[in-house]
Write a protein that binds this DNA or RNA. Structure first.
Lengths: 216, 216
DNA sequence: CTCGGTGCTGTGAACGCGCTGAGGACACCG
DNA sequence: CGGTGTCCTCAGCGCGTTCACAGCACCGAG
């Protein structure tokens, strides 16, 4: 959770309360600092005061949204005018709470915000009867699960993103192995061997002198 | 837009106002009628009164969510107690407005809801016979209560929001632990160990070199 | 058919990941 | 002021993973 609030006492109280609820909380005291923190990502939601030194909460959200960041934002403000509230929401905030607010309500609204906005990514790579799910880190061959080690998985992942294309051994070494690390030049051959054993002999074709190709 | 409101004058006023804004509006006058309409789908959002004949707004949302409908819901109520509001939100509503409300604010909140779209998550996370209620902060396993510490709860919460997916230790460290704090890199392993002890050995799978996965 | 180069695989060893138990720091409570 | 509970660090251990090496198989050219 990111809390952007310049009033030190309120910020500290929020931090303590949220931490007690099990949230990991960072606090920023100024608009620009808050914007920076939000930009770097890694937060599940942001609690944002409107009156901030350096950059108003309105402007902060507007910029964030303009930069394609869709972090859920709960706006806090002493302004309880209906137009203030409408302005805040129309800037891109997801909820708006006027001070003084009830802590119970704050938590409930925060939970409602966190419930939303999960960019489900149904990206599953599939070639023939081979399926690879990067998120679940699962590989199946004809609906039968295949267990792969980390390195084997990384190698197959890379190959399955360009099925049918010939990929050179040096390219694989660069991308699947740590570039900095000095690895034996035949490591690729070894791991292609492992994969063949688990996936079937003729799934990975050798193109002599050029590299490997995933049969389509 | 679906408006569920039994007070005829308010319902008519809402319908007229929203139509002027370009929304297509249907009105239902009772709880059961509203639930039926919402179930049939096709709406982008619902405005829902709490006090309804036949079925309360709370119950209506709860049933809708239980049936895997994630239509955005803006709840309206004359009850302005903080716990009423928290209850409404924890039932699965996305926003809560107390009567009397400003029409300008209603519109702004509606726009904010529509911006976010429908894909949401249930108020109670359930995987297999594990259930976790973020609002009540309770976890049950096969209907037996399991007591967790704050950190254990936060960790399980995070994992249960993406069941089946592999989540890396660094991601867990970033989201469950305070980013600012320097934590020992194996803290995650320790807490996974605690959870395993309380939830059963094979519920949390280790994916060597990648992270952890909550068995589905 | 021969021969050099390229790719494949079995073996074994070292590494490092992940797990656990012990224990210290700290807050909270009576 | 001790008791209790949580959070976290640390060190050690077991074992799967990774990798180097060497010998063998295979391919294509002459």
């Amino acid at each position: 959770m990111l809390v952007v609030e310049d009033e030190a006492r309120l910020a500290a109280a929020l931090q303590r309360g949220l931490q007690a609820e099990g949230f990991a909380v960072d606090v920023a005291g100024t608009g620009p600092a808050g914007l920076d923190a939000a930009r770097h990502g890694g937060y599940d939601a942001m609690i944002l005061d409107v009156m901030l030194p350096g950059l108003s909460g309105y402007e902060l959200v507007r910029r964030l949204r303009a930069e394609q960041h869709w972090l859920p934002v709960l706006m806090l403000s002493a302004k309880d005018g209906e137009y203030d509230q409408a302005d805040g929401l129309d800037c891109g905030a997801d909820d708006y709470l006027t001070k003084p607010f009830s802590y119970v309500v704050l938590l409930a609204r925060l939970r409602a915000l966190l419930r939303r906005g999960a960019p489900e990514r149904p990206t599953v790579l599939a070639v023939d009867d081979l399926r690879l799910d990067p998120a679940r880190r699962r590989v199946t061959r004809a609906d039968a699960e295949v267990t792969l080690t980390a390195r084997e998985f990384a190698l197959l992942d890379y190959l399955m993103r360009r099925p049918g294309q010939v990929i050179s051994k040096t390219e694989l070494l660069d991308h699947v192995w740590d570039a900095s690390l000095e690895t034996a030049p035949n490591a690729v051959e070894v791991y292609v061997g492992y994969l063949r054993r688990k996936l079937g002999r003729d799934r990975l074709e050798t193109v002599r002198g050029a590299g490997y190709r995933l049969a389509t």
